[in-house]
Design a protein around this nucleic acid. Structure first.
Lengths: 165, 165
DNA sequence: AGCACTTGCTTCAACTTCGAAGCACTGCTA
DNA sequence: TAGCAGTGCTTCGAAGTTGAAGCAAGTGCT
């Protein structure tokens, strides 16, 4: 029987709900723009962005992609299949590990990314940054970055599979 | 052809990605706890919480629920159906408007909510609030609340009339 | 080398989600 | 008070998402 912890106070609840609401609303807005501008889902955009903007080589293994994006493996397989069918990425067996699959963004993928980005930033500017001053934005980044690091490092849940030997 | 806006700078991108990542990771963590503790999805929890905690009467119309939660109408119909089948809420035609449906939380719903809440707050404490000081939490709430208000008021949908130039 | 475990990805079935279309009731307007 | 646009919710079909099971390739222990 778990002992009942102190309930969260109003400030904490406010922060929690505001965070989740903003993220949800923002995702909706972004998703819609992406759909109209390039017929991309948010996940697909994330994948292309990671390959085209974050990665210097434009290629990553499936697992690294799945870790970067908060996403299930099977879902990634599905979306990578769609992107490949659309000619935006290629999938090839990894050279060093026969099990692995390396996903690489194509020129068409980069082109679509470039086409979609301006509208994307516009949405962010209007929806997210409009009510935030420069300093607010900095503060937000500085508050949330440690949280992200904390959550990424700490096992999200009891997920820690007992390493037995 | 849309004119190309200034791209976002590094700080803005950092804030954006941190926000979305934290929300995504947190949602996963919360969802898992809810599933284990009470076999609830995040949406179902949100609905129960809104009925059981926010609403003084424990009853709301479908539309008000859908507006509170970021969710489609048809999705709400589906989830409300599940909750009803599980005996956690009831759905009755609204008294004043024959079209409307009033959703009310049942005793079983309140009981489940109470059962699930302690674990929920624990997850929040560990995942979200652990790296945040008291002041940080306050700052976060104060930064995000105006954004939420802004996004809720601004037309999130295609209702946004294309700015002509 | 041999055998068991682990890892990387895919497949599968069940479930969820969404928008568009549909149905029923409201309320405005003439 | 009849007509009709608008509102509230549900149904439907298509597409997306997930965990579990499955397969194949690597790793480690002896």
């Amino acid at each position: 029987m778990p002992d009942t912890p102190e309930p969260l106070d109003a400030v904490q609840l406010g922060a929690y709900f505001a965070l989740m609401d903003v993220a949800g609303l923002l995702r909706h807005a972004v998703e819609q723009q992406l759909r109209e501008a390039g017929d991309l889902s948010y996940v697909q955009f994330q994948l292309l962005a990671r390959l085209g903007l974050d990665s210097p080589t434009g290629r990553e293994r499936m697992t690294d992609l799945a870790d970067g994006v908060v996403y299930s493996r099977s879902g990634l397989t599905y979306q990578a299949g769609l992107l490949e069918k659309a000619g935006l990425v290629t999938r090839t067996p990894s050279a060093d590990d026969e099990r692995g699959v390396t996903v690489a963004i194509t020129d068409a993928g980069r082109a679509l990314l470039a086409k979609v980005l301006p509208g994307h930033t516009e949405v962010l500017r209007h929806q997210l940054f409009a009510p935030l001053s420069r300093r607010d934005t900095e503060a937000l980044a500085e508050l949330l970055s440690p949280v992200r690091d904390h959550m990424r490092s700490a096992p999200p849940r009891s997920a820690a599979p007992r390493r037995r030997r």
